[in-house]
Amino acid sequence: MNIELSILDWIQTLHTPFLDKIMVFITRLGDAGIIWIVLSIVLLLIPKTRKSGAVMVVALVVDVLLCNIVLKNLVARTRPYDVNTGVHLLVAKLHDYSFPSGHTAASFASVTALYLAGEKKLWKFALVLACLIAISRLYLYVHYPTDVLGGILFGVISGYLGYRKVLK
């Protein structure tokens, strides 16, 4: 875990007032998966993209069950700011565990769902946003790098399972 804290501490050296505001904004887009939920609803409302919206909804449900209910409580990893208490947080302390990153998992579940559902342009935009959300979690010192990597992995699995359930 020391190398992970070293990485997070190095990221802290990149802070600027402008980046602080941007990263807080980006991370808030992922709060409770709101950006992905809204996108799912929009896709469900458009007949041409309804199946893609359904894949996203199922992927997000699988993600919540797998990551937030099972894995976070099973692993019960302490957040980095609770280990290094000297860090100034730009967001409120969270009341759940660190592994995996739920913001990252929901983001990559959505990207994977969009990609597999054939949303040729939308998945690329979603991938950029998902990567920014993942980076914001490190920048804000609320997750370890392996939490984010775990979020990517379990997000991709959730997206694939959503796709399999709806379109296969």
Rank of each mutant, 00 (worst) to 15 (best):
H103P: 01
L43H: 01
V42P: 06
A92Q: 12
M56C: 14
T78R: 12
N73F: 06
A106T: 13
L39E: 05
I152G: 03
T112V: 08
K72R: 13
L39M: 10
F108I: 02
V148Q: 07
G102S: 10
G155F: 01
L44V: 11
L161F: 12
L65N: 03
V64G: 04
K51C: 01
A117I: 12
L39G: 04
S52V: 07
A134Y: 09
I157P: 03
L132K: 06
G118W: 04
G53I: 07
Y144I: 05
P100R: 03
L60F: 14
L74D: 09
K48D: 14
Y144G: 05
A109Y: 01
R79Q: 04
L94N: 01
Y115L: 14
Y160F: 15
L129E: 09
L138I: 11
C131Y: 05
S158P: 11
L94Q: 13
Y160L: 15
A106N: 15
V38C: 05
G155S: 07
S136M: 06
T112K: 02
S98Q: 02
D63L: 08
L122E: 07
S158K: 13
G159Q: 09
L161M: 13
M56F: 09
L90T: 08
V128C: 00
I34V: 13
I46Q: 12
G150R: 01
L114S: 03
H103T: 02
R137N: 03
A106I: 05
V62D: 02
P80Y: 04
